[in-house]
């Protein structure tokens, strides 16, 4: 079935220069494997097409049931240069939570 990440995860995003970091956290430990399987770096790059102009890297934090994504060249030059309303990408966390994935969720 289709599941929106908002319903199974929460997230926080921040910046380092022109790179955005998004930490994605499973709301229940049982959901973590689904995130690992479905929310790949490639899918995240597609999801942010037009916003993230560089590559996407993904790291796993199984101890926190979390994934960390680095989105390169995603902040219009970075916090002090950007002309965007959200120059540090603070809301890119919830942009990720819009993603829909196919998942059979464990009970």
């Amino acid at each position: 079935m289709k599941v929106r990440l908002l319903d199974i995860a929460h997230a926080r995003s921040g910046d380092k220069g022109n790179t955005s970091n998004i930490g994605l956290i499973a709301r229940r430990p049982e959901y973590y494997d689904t995130l690992v399987k479905q929310v790949t770096a490639e899918r995240v790059r597609e999801h942010f097409a037009g916003v993230c102009l560089g590559k996407v890297e993904r790291f796993e934090l199984p101890n926190l049931n979390a994934l960390n994504f680095l989105l390169y060249d995603a902040l219009d030059g970075g916090g002090t240069l950007s002309l965007r309303a959200d120059p540090q990408g603070k809301t890119l966390s919830t942009a990720l939570l819009r993603m829909e994935i196919d998942a059979e969720l464990p009970e």
Binding site: S13, G14, K16, N21, G23, R27, F59
Partner: peptide, 16 residues
């Protein structure tokens, strides 16, 4: 645990 986890994943790169 959820609120602290959100902060711990904030502005990190390679977590290892």
């Amino acid at each position: 645990v959820a609120s602290v986890t959100e902060q711990l994943v904030y502005e990190i790169g390679d977590p290892r």
